[in-house]
Simulated scan of single mutants.
Amino acid sequence: MTTDTLVTLHDVPVLRCAPDGPALDGEQSALDLIGDAMGQGAELVVLPASRVADAFFQLRSGVAGAVLQKFVAYRVRLAVIGDLSHHLADSSALRDLVHETNQGGHIWFLPDDDALAARLRGTR
């Protein structure tokens, strides 16, 4: 298993999560990631979309709301990187959530590392 690593991207300390780590599946997993990020001095957690549990994308489950609330409350940014098209095709509410969060500077759902780099260039 690879480990999460602290890197600096565009002057932002980033906790880059390994693709084979535990799933982001609720409040406790969010708090674990936030704690790891804060312990390493990271301002942003970059999480592969493959590590986000399916329940997160089913908005009725409440997982997404609980997770996103934790990241906002602790002021640790989150970027989910990867293809979400199969989830977005099934839910207009999820499409709206992704669109709205991507308008802000705290939670992003991005297709790849190039899109992340472009966002980070724009925030500094």
Rank of each mutant, 00 (worst) to 15 (best):
Q28T: 13
E100W: 14
R75N: 14
R124A: 15
L9V: 06
A93K: 11
A18L: 03
D54H: 12
G26L: 07
Q103S: 10
L59Q: 11
S50L: 15
N102A: 04
D4E: 10
A117K: 09
P111F: 06
A42N: 04
V80K: 03
P19N: 04
V98C: 12
V7Y: 00
L116D: 00
G105R: 08
A53V: 14
Y74Q: 13
A55Q: 12
Q103R: 13
A73E: 12
Q58H: 11
W108V: 05
F57L: 13
Q58A: 13
R119H: 10
D113W: 02
V52D: 09
E100G: 03
L78G: 03
R51F: 05
L24W: 13
A66D: 12
R60D: 12
A79M: 07
T8M: 02
S92R: 12
Y74N: 15
G26Y: 06
S91H: 03
Q103L: 15
E43K: 07
D36S: 11
H87N: 10
D114L: 09
S92L: 12
I81C: 03
G39F: 05
R121N: 08
L6W: 06
G21M: 11
A66E: 15
G26T: 05
D20W: 04
G41M: 05
V7F: 03
I107P: 02
L97I: 02
I107Q: 01
T123G: 00
H106W: 08
V52C: 12
T3K: 09
L68G: 07
P19F: 02
F57P: 15
L120A: 02
V46L: 06
H106K: 09
L84P: 01
T123W: 13
V76I: 08
A53S: 15
L78R: 08
T3S: 14
R95P: 01
A118M: 05
R77Y: 01
A55M: 11
H106Q: 07
Q58M: 09
R51L: 14
C17I: 06
V7H: 00
Q58K: 14
V52G: 13
D54T: 15
V14P: 00
I34K: 06
L24F: 07
L47Q: 04
G82K: 06
V12S: 00
Q69F: 10
R16C: 00
L47Y: 03
D113H: 12
V76N: 02
K70H: 13
G65M: 11
G21S: 14
S92T: 09
V46W: 00
D54A: 14
L116P: 00
V45L: 07
H87P: 04
G35N: 12
A117W: 01
V76R: 04
Q58E: 05
L33P: 02
D32Y: 10
A115Q: 00
R95H: 01
